[in-house]
Design a binder for these strands. Sequence first.
DNA 1: TGATTCTACGGTCTC
DNA 2: CGTAGAATCA
Length: 773
Amino acid sequence: MDFLQGMNPQQREAVAHLEGPLLLLAGAGSGKTRVITHRIAHLVETHQVPGPCILAVTFTNKAADEMRQRVHSLLGGDRGRSSPLVSTFHSFCVRLLRRDGAKLADIRPGFTRNFTIYDDDDQVALLKSIYRELGLDDKFLAYRAACSWISHNKSQRIGPQDVYKSAQDPKASRMAVIYDRYEQRLRLANSLDFDDLLLESVRLLRHDTDLRAQYNRRFEFVMIDEYQDTNRTQYDLIRLLSDSHKNIVVVGDEDQSIYGWRGADIRNILDFERDYPNAAVIRLEQNYRSTKNILEAASAVVANNKERKGKWLWTEAGTGDRIGIYEAADAENEALFIADNIDKLMRDFPGQRVAVLYRTNFQSRQIEEALRRYNRQYIVVGGFSFYQRAEVKDLLAYLKVLLSPSDSISLLRIINNPARGIGKSSIEQIEQFALKNELSLWSAIVRLLDEGAFPARAESALRAFRNMLEDLMAAVPKQTIDETLRQILERSGYQKMLASVETPESESRIGNLMELVNAATEAAERGESATEFLDHAALVADSDSLDEQAGISLLTMHNAKGLEFPFVFIAGLEEGLFPHSRSLDSAAQMEEERRLCYVGMTRAEKKLFLTHAKFRRKFFGSPPERCIPSRFLKEVPRALVQSLGVQSRNTNVDLFSEQREVRETVKKNLYTGKTYDSVENINQFFAERGGPAPVARPPQVVQQPQRPAAAAAPMQARKKKPFGAGSLVSHPKYGRGTVLRREGEGDDAKLTVSFPGYGLKKLIEKFAGIREE
DNA sequence: TGATTCTACGGTCTC
DNA sequence: CGTAGAATCA
């Protein structure tokens, strides 16, 4: 197959590029992914480069999955040939450190390849603990703010000492102390945060020259996607990986750099030519996605930025509709306008996807409510993901502790959860002792118990806790992951705790936990270790679970990067919201907001709507505030605008009663409308991660055991009865769903069923009128 | 000690 | 409105 066929001249040149550095400036919708995948296939087929010698790095798992699939199908699905490594930065680094990280112990005392990963919740928990230690509270500096401050310093290579030395006031030096403690505690717990994964990989490759040489030999060709969003650490990593051969292709678009707040350094792309003097540069400027009007409008907006290389995308597509701009009286009306137009669009263009984009997640709420009015199903991308749910994190924390007892933050999370008589004072005692002796909490508990230092009640509680953990630890090597998880649920009393309260909430929690066990079963079947399972849980992002087949998607503009939709609405174009208030006083941040606007606008293929409200309330109860239309609206050339005047009053319905009704449903039912974390999606998600050919198979949901003794019973001992847990059913009103749980016998049986788009429903079998799917 | 209620306060984007 | 931490009661 000729991989150069059907390409325009610039694309062809990029695909054919063989050796040496290349900067590929690929505008929005210019066929970037196609070029990358074709280049990989071209290297393999035409130049006989062995697959494993090629490394392609992307930013999200989703992008990596997609790329892997596309390369695979380009290469004719030849399974015999080993494929290139397509990975995210973070998973690449985890892999590096787990496999070849032993030598890192030389420069990071206490490090073992058994390390645990701290996500942002863990980071916050750690900071809380440090605040407590230093006698501070979050009025000093909000935990999250402290978190991002530390992260920022870390990725810039500014250590606690540097901060301390340059501190001008007591607050700054105190922050240096917090930062210092934070780093120490991470080391003590043998844990790495997200920044560390990258940083320590860089340090390892610098330190271990043999390893570096080995990786240079192994990955002869390196490609980096979304290069404009790399930070300094990632930049260093890239350099180290392409150190000896310089066969490095970076693909990016400075106009789409939207992660500056996360440390992305736009200079990486602007300075590439300086850093690699002989770099070839190719520009892809033909857009294949949007109409001429959309493209011109977006280009006109971003042209107001100063810090850019400057390019002008063109298209052969037709002019298309003008950009619809709508001014709503308030946010409710804005949401209704959007829902109403979506409703019309979906009737006029069945099967076409629509996206509603916004700056901040909280904006989704009103749009959701309006869409429900129209009985339209939608998917919210982002927000709370499966792995962020408290019960899921709890169970994973148990697993983390079993694998790495020095992980004190996870230990803290589970030590009295469920309540087992280890109270505040005992925990304080343990923490103090650990602090004084530079021990992990686990070692502190063991030591204190051996010394008999606890009061009698605490002593017995802690002894029981220790015994339980030790038993579980001993069993881990002999079990599969799912067995371990089941053991934890049983022995810790967690399952009992949830089962003892019969609220819909605890029901759904049990459902989530069973789902996690399920995922573990599948991971075990794929031969994954418990550590790999945890790594996966730590590194998945919300946007990874995005279902592109969904008719209506609600998502932030950040989440929308790399996606395209025939119809796009961007809501809330108001000064202070978009551009966001925190960006108003910095020119650089304002430019990033504008790039974000550009990213949002260029997602649209056929028709783009921009909406804003005259009044909006900041949060519930506060009075609506007058809003100034966003400056970005004025930057769209008037000739391209179609003003969608104030819609007649008849859409002015009573949203308040509507909201109340919706809120009631939400209360009863955790899942309403949030199909992204329905059982089906989660299952599909895991199925897809299994291999190149996703198989849609019915979820295997473990039935809630009647007695603890049944907990260890194998899954295949499922009831043969119709509508048992795991069977697919269809309901006259809710459509297809999956039975999660069955209680009782015969016709009186109560079923808990998860319906995508409607959530968990409890039904009596004989009344429900459900049938087998 | 643990469960429940009360109160104060606050919010960008997220690998 | 949510949430976190304090206060209160069993």
